[in-house]
Design a protein around this nucleic acid. Structure first.
Length: 416
RNA sequence: GGAGGGAUAGCGAAGUUGGCCAAACGCGGCGGACUGUAAAUCCGCUCCCAUCGGGUUCGUAGGUUCGAGUCCUACUCCCUCCA
């Protein structure tokens, strides 16, 4: 049935609107026409789409790379669609077949719960968690019996499984692939069936997995979900994809100052991509930025300032955005010290070798490191460079200690 | 089960006629200068303590030696080939 034809003019405009926003920035929509039909159907029947996102139950550390998907979910939410978050507590027991982590220690129920809560808190910075459905896939997966598993397994050939990049590579390299790993995509697909998902989101690296849902749903005679693959965003280096292990990420939990500073360090070529994929700006606003930059009317640095402010505002609020911006200008453009900085009470000896002080405060891991730092001119006391590693300091209340470019501490004496 | 190869600082990787090895080089990390940024570029640093200098390091445990990352023995782990 063609739902698009059933729509009246107003509904068609609604469809166009949703399509423009929802398809924006997406790497691929599989298949496009089905997606359009789904939206049309949802408008016609006034039935929100069920949009699924599967989550790994391991300790979450949400960074901007994830928010690419979250922003998209938010857009779905804005159109009234329903978000289904799935905590893969059952799947997690198998371990994601990335090759690296073939064996993964099973998480306890408490750990899973805790991690789920963390997801909730961190995701809440980007989208509205009130309206989100939360599911644990052990609920249904633990109920599936072996004969059912066999039936499912009989719908997939090994050759098809081996198409998956990771499996393919390991097979070629004579690296082990355990049988149970084949079930990872199957189970993930089963989740889609269990929740009758209409749409599933994932990064482009998840293509094989999320596509599997369609196959499982078809097996059960269910309408197949549409898959939206989101681009992976490059990290601070502008080359590798953003990830925790590459240490090139901006975490949503980081301080406003760090988020601002890190954003300022992305290469110019990445600016637009960040605007498009992780900023909360509308399409029109992003296009405006793009035009201004192309005309040369907007300095890349200023564009980045805007971006950094927008990101901090999204994650920490408007006030924090203004403050971190002011701090950044102070510290890096005017070479001043920030407005406010962490204060630490010093209850040690008032007369102390600078190397000891710095180490005691945990600013540097060892005294050798401190000496080195001083030799390189990297330590300042009240904005004055410390010239000699042997310097003995008279600690005074309010003394400002700077280590490197961006570690600042104000010392307070315990007596005051 | 049999044969061989290897384990070096955060990673990768030199070093095997025993001393000149705290250990080349690359990456990463850090600092400085510079700049529009924490970008790019250039320079410096990168085990610990220390003023000279010293102390612990090269899979683990022993041994040979004035002296071992470099030689010997045992152990652990990893890889390759054969069955």
């Amino acid at each position: 049935m063609n739902f698009i034809e059933l729509l009246n003019d107003q509904q068609k405009r609604e469809l166009e609107q949703q399509w423009e926003v929802l398809s924006y920035g997406v790497s691929s929509i599989i298949p496009e026409q089905e997606f359009k039909q789904k939206i049309a159907k949802s408008i016609k029947n006034q039935q929100p789409l069920k949009v699924k996102l599967g989550l790994d139950p391991t300790a979450p550390d949400v960074h901007l790379g994830h928010t690419v998907v979250l922003n998209k979910l938010k857009q779905f939410q804005n159109f009234g669609h329903t978000i289904q978050l799935i905590i893969g507590d059952f799947t997690g027991k198998i371990g994601d077949p990335t090759g690296k982590t073939a064996t993964r220690t099973a998480l306890t129920d408490e750990e899973v719960k805790h991690n789920a809560r963390t997801y909730f808190e961190q995701f809440g910075k980007v989208m509205d968690m009130e309206k989100v459905e939360l599911h644990y896939n052990s609920k249904w997966l633990s109920q599936v019996d072996f004969s059912e598993v066999l039936k499912l397994a009989s719908t997939v050939t090994v050759a098809r499984m081996l198409e998956r990049n990771d499996f393919h590579n390991r097979y070629e390299a004579n690296k082990p692939i355990y049988l149970h790993e084949f079930f990872y995509p199957v189970m993930q697909g089963y989740d889609s069936y269990a929740l009758s998902s209409d749409v599933e989101l994932g990064g482009t690296d998840q293509e094989f997995n999320v596509l599997f849902g369609r196959q499982i749903q078809e097996h059960y005679g269910q309408e197949k979900q549409v898959v939206l693959l989101m681009p992976l965003i490059e990290g601070l280096d502008g080359v590798e994809k953003m990830s925790k292990s590459k240490n090139n990420y901006i975490g949503v939990e980081e301080s406003p100052r760090d988020i601002f500073g890190k954003t300022m360090s992305i290469p110019d070529e990445q600016i637009l991509k960040y605007f498009q994929l992780v900023s909360p700006l509308t399409i029109d606003e992003v296009n405006e930025v793009k035009q201004q930059m192309e005309k040369g009317a907007l300095h890349p640095r200023d564009a980045k300032m805007m971006l950094a402010s927008a990101l901090v505002a999204m994650l920490h609020g408007k006030k924090a955005a203004e403050e971190s911006k002011a701090d950044f200008e102070n510290v890096f453009q005017k070479n001043q010290i920030p407005e406010d900085m962490p204060e630490v009470v010093w209850d040690g000896n008032q007369t102390v070798a600078i190397v000891d002080l710095v180490k005691e405060l945990g600013l540097l891991p060892s005294k050798s490191e401190a000496r080195r730092m001083i030799k390189n001119g990297g330590i300042r006391v009240n904005q004055e460079k410390v010239p000699d590693p042997a310097t003995i300091l008279e600690v005074k209340d309010g003394l400002v200690l700077q280590v490197g470019k961006r570690k600042f501490i104000r010392l307070r004496l315990s007596s005051s």
